[in-house]
């Protein structure tokens, strides 16, 4: 039996067919199983808000203790005054990495690089 960690990469096409609740349920079910989830397209602000709330509801002592999440672009890619002028909300986030907080450490993030360190349980 090979020891390892599962990584699921979910395509933008697949995400587009899912409702918000389906996405969040899939993420939490996967992450609680120890899977690292990579979304080709990030979650909407509303979905992020619900994800935080549901994550909190599922935390248990000596069990699931939450998620680590990282997304780009963010650094050095702020919308700045253009956004204020046009009244547009922040650009949609692209690739998003989500994993169990007790196994995943984001060690470096740049405008276009996410570096993650994953420990086996």
């Amino acid at each position: 039996m090979i020891e390892g960690i599962q990584i699921d990469l979910i395509s933008e096409e697949r995400l587009a067919t899912m409702t918000s609740m389906e996405k969040i349920r899939m993420i939490l079910d996967d992450v609680r199983r120890g899977t690292i989830v990579i979304l080709e397209k990030g979650l909407a602000p509303e979905e992020q808000s619900t994800l935080i709330e549901m994550t909190m509801r599922e935390i248990l002592p000596d069990g699931f203790n939450g998620i680590e999440i990282e997304t780009y672009p963010s650094r050095a890619d702020s919308p700045g005054f253009l956004k204020r002028l046009l009244g547009k909300s922040a650009p949609e986030s692209r690739l998003t990495v989500i994993g169990p907080a007790n196994q995943l450490r984001m060690i470096k993030k740049d405008k276009d690089v996410i570096s993650a360190w994953i420990s086996t349980r």
Binding site: P45, Q48, A90
Partner: peptide, 14 residues
């Protein structure tokens, strides 16, 4: 740049 700040500001902006 902690992700939670980026997310919260995004949620507030939305």
């Amino acid at each position: 740049f902690m992700q939670v700040n980026i997310m919260m500001i995004g949620i507030i902006e939305s």
